[in-house]
Amino acid sequence: MKKLRQLLHLPRVNEAKRYTRSKVGNFFYFFFLFAAGVFSLLPMIYCVVTSFKPLDELLVFPPTLFTVKRPTLNNFLALPDLISSLSVPLSRYVFNSIFIAVVGTVLCVIFSAMSAFVLSKTDIKHKGIIFTVIQFALLFNSYTLAIPQYIIYSTLGVINTYFVYLLPTLASSMGVFLMKQYMDGYVPDALIEAAHIDGADWFQIFGKIIVPIIRPCMLTLTLFTFLGLWNVGNAGTIFSEQLKTLPTVMATIATGGLARTGSSMAVSVIMMIPPILVYLISQSSIKETMGSAGIKG
C-alpha cells in the first residue's frame, strides 16, 4: 500500500509546460477571453444593475439596461419587510435550501461514484442493459414522469417530507454516466490490480485509488448537482410552508408584479452567491489528475 501511494504521489515529470507565445499573441489571447467574458456577463450585470434601480427608473421605456442614475439600496432594504410578512421565518427557507443541496449533493456524488465503479471495473451481470437504461434515462424531461412519480411518493408515504427532494438523487443517471465514462478512460485496470496485490481490500481500492483519480469528475458533478438542487422547486409534492425552499420564496416575492421587479432582482442576486461559492471552491481544488502518474511513468 505504502509503495503504491508513493507511486501515486510521484512528482510530475515537468511542471513548467507552456507554449511559447509572442507578446502580441498573449495580448489577443487575453483580449479575446476578456471580450467573450464580458459578453457572457451581460445578463448578470443587467441583473445586478436592476437590483439597484429605484422604481421610477425601472419603468422607463425604452429600458436603460446597464446604467443607473440614482442607485438605491431600497430594493435590498425592502426585503426584510417582504420577508417578515411571510408566515415562516426566512432562516427556515435558507436552512431547507442549504440542507437539501448539501445532503443531496453528497448522496448523489457518493452513490454515483460507487455505481460507476462497479459498472466500469467489474463484470457484473446485465452490465449492458444497465448502461442502456442510463443513456435512456438521460433523455427524460421531468414533466413526463411527474404524475407517476407522485403516485410513487404517495405510495411510499413521503409526500410532504424532505425525502421528496432527496430520494431522486439516489438514482442520478447523469452522475453515473459522467463517472463511468471518466473511469473507463482514466482509471487503468492495472492500478486496481496493483492495489489488490499490495493487499488493499475493496473499500481501500475505492477510497484510496479510485476516488483520488476521479476527483475532477466528482467535483464537476458536485457542482451540477448542487446547482440543480439549489434551484429545486416544490413540484406539487411539498405542501407545508416549513419545507419549502428559497426559490419558492423568490417566486412569491416576484409575483408582486412590476413594482417588485427591483426586489425580485435583489433576491436573485443573493440567490446567485452560493452556487458561485461552490463553483470557486470546487474549481480551485481541482488539481491535475494523478491517474497517468500511477502507471505510465
Binding site: 460507487m114 444497465i130 434515462a137 427524460f140 414522469l145 412519480q149 430520494l167 438514482a171
Partner: peptide, 24 residues
C-alpha cells in the same frame, strides 16, 4: 462487493425511473 455497491442506485432507478417510465 460489486452488487453491494450498485444496489442502492439500482433500487433508486427502478423506483424513481423505470416504474414511472412504464406507467407513463
Amino acid at each position: 462487493y460489486a452488487f453491494m455497491f450498485i444496489s442502492p442506485w439500482i433500487i433508486g432507478m427502478i423506483i424513481f425511473f423505470l416504474f414511472p417510465i412504464f406507467h407513463s
